[in-house]
Design a protein around this nucleic acid. Structure first.
Length: 507
RNA sequence: GGUCCCAUCGUCUAGGGGUUAGGACAUCAGAUUUUCAUUCUGGUAACACGGGUUCGAUUCCCGUUGGGACUACCA
């Protein structure tokens, strides 16, 4: 396949939604697969929705998940600038060309007039309340107003927009790589605003112009754009760029985990899972959106999970590195139906990726949660090695390793009431004495010593294991106790057992 | 309401005119284990419905139903 030029074109209006990450991922995979170019274009033509920090957030997020940008705001490139607000002057000439050739017109209608028009149509029971080939002749625009009047308005600085003059009876067809041929009658397309009254283009004009100028070969975007794709085709045609028109691929949507509808932050909050790469605090509302990073997810696991939401390799392989995804990816294998977002599956991937990491890598997660210098890297690696089979999130190391760094402040009452009995006290008393004489406690020594004690006393070791565990860790469950004791060392183990014996004796 | 898109286990999906409809997550049971977890083994579980086409449809076509997206001077 020829090298493609694809773009991810987010709007900096807030945190980057996970669906956006998947869109970026599919673009990226196709780019890498074909040795092509991945472009990041910031679509900030709506100045009223600009949110400070959003653009940086988007770039940081893409970087975290491993999506590298070839051309963009910070990387630069042959088609700079890559921020649409900085390309403002470019769009005007194309709008002008459309006007000159009779494919667009000036419209002076106020918001109230537009509202009144819609209400009027609604009242008559019209199924279509759009600014269209029928309604445009009843409005204030350069099609209905005398030429002199239009000229006067333009010169006196009256507010105006430029609208596309959609042909009135024509079938517009486009080929979507995922859905095949899609046809829409031009009657259904309204006379979309191309240039807003503030002089900025709308998405429709800007994206077509930029995709053409930036020589984009494939437009891979969410399905929510499918209804306006015919409009874009029209624009390519009127601008004389039909031959250079990119190929379209409209991705299936990410759906709520239960019920129906597009996945939203509300659903994620309700179900208690993140929906954004990093935590994001909305600068105006102060509202927090939880991030995958802070929630303990690994970027590779997230990517693997996301890749499989709407795409599959057709084999039974489940675990894919980014490089493997690149070589396995094809647009043909993208599905058509929306995919429910199942966080449990994401957790499973995370667990798989965590387990596959080396103890040294894992140690970093534990060390990060500890005061500097409180634990050696070797010790942390050893602890993580023991813990890695029982961990789902990166922060699980810290919580599960807690007892290594602090003696239990309290004991699990359930375990105590069930397992703390005379046998346990007898064995633990003898065991602690036996351990006290051991200098270098190994897991092996801890085990044989315990066996010696229990056989001598004639008490099954199984009966007191829980009591031993609770005395050392405070909890009824956890990792291999003998190895844990080795890491803790005999002095600490003995002191913990003795402490438990003195505080729990009465129970 | 209108337009467009979509439809295989609870979820993500493979498959495709004749299959015991496959895998993964989740779930259930058993085994292993010093507990919990891991791991292993096994089980439950799906072609939305109705018409065609055909010797034969889950697969192809049409319709119904259901769901979704869009319907702004937002992207």
């Amino acid at each position: 396949m020829q090298p493609v030029r694809v773009r991810f074109a987010p709007s900096p209006t807030g945190a980057l939604h996970i669906g956006g990450v998947r869109t970026a991922l599919y673009n990226y995979l196709l780019a890498k697969k074909t040795n092509g170019t991945m472009i990041l274009r910031i679509e900030d033509t709506d100045q009223t929705r600009f949110v400070p920090g959003a653009e940086e957030y988007i770039m940081k997020s893409l970087e975290w998940v491993g999506i590298k940008i070839d051309e963009g705001v910070v990387q630069g490139g042959p088609h700079a600038p890559y921020r649409q607000s900085e390309r403002k002057s470019i769009y005007k000439q194309y709008a002008q060309k459309l006007i000159d050739e009779g494919n667009a017109y000036y419209a002076f209608d106020t918001e109230e007039e537009l509202e009144a028009m819609r209400n009027r149509l609604k009242a008559t029971g019209s199924s279509n309340q759009q600014y269209s080939s029928i309604t445009r002749m009843m409005m204030n625009n350069s099609l209905t107003l005398p030429e002199a009047e239009v000229k006067r308005k333009l010169e006196s600085g009256d507010a105006y927009v430029i609208r596309l003059k959609v042909p009135d009876a024509e079938e517009i067809a486009l080929t979507d790589l995922i859905r095949g041929e899609v046809k829409v009658h031009s009657e259904q397309i309204d006379d979309k605003v191309l240039m807003k009254s503030d002089g900025m283009p709308t998405y429709h004009l800007a994206n077509v112009v930029d995709d053409y100028l930036m020589q984009i070969t494939h437009v891979i975007r969410g399905e929510e754009w499918l209804p306006s794709a015919p409009l874009h085709v029209l624009l390519y045609r009127f601008l004389g760029w039909e031959k250079q028109m990119p190929q379209f691929a409209h991705l299936p949507l990410l759906l709520k985990p239960d019920g129906n509808g597009k996945l939203s932050k509300r659903d994620a909050d309700k179900a208690g899972f993140p929906l954004f790469p990093y935590n994001w605090v909305d600068p105006t509302s102060g509202e927090l959106s939880k991030g995958f990073q802070e929630s303990g997810y690994l970027p590779d696991a997230l990517i693997n999970f996301l890749a499989f939401l709407g795409w599959n390799p057709g084999t039974e392989q489940e675990i894919f590195s980014m490089a493997e995804l690149v070589s396995a990816f094809t647009v043909e294998r993208i599905g058509k139906a929306g995919a429910r977002f199942d966080i449990l599956k994401a957790q499973w991937f995370n667990q798989q990726y965590l387990k596959a990491k080396s103890n040294d890598e894992l140690a970093e997660f534990l060390l990060a949660s500890l005061p500097a210098g409180s634990c050696t890297k070797e010790k942390a690696a050893k602890i993580c090695g023991m813990l890695k089979e029982r961990v789902t999130f990166t922060h699980d190391f810290a919580t599960q390793a807690k007892f290594f760094f602090e003696a239990p402040a309290e004991y699990d009452q359930q375990v105590v009431s069930k397992k703390w009995n005379n046998d346990a006290v007898t064995v633990l008393t003898a065991y602690s004495q036996a351990l006290a004489s051991i200098q270098e406690l190994t897991a092996e020594a801890a085990k044989t010593t315990l066996e010696n004690v229990t056989t001598t006393l004639g008490i099954g070791s199984g009966k007191i294991m829980q009591a031993l565990r609770v005395s050392i860790t405070g909890a009824g469950s956890g990792p291999d106790l003998m190895i844990a004791m080795e890491i803790l060392g005999s002095t600490e183990v003995v002191s913990r057992i003795n402490r438990a014996l003195s505080t729990l004796k009465k129970v």
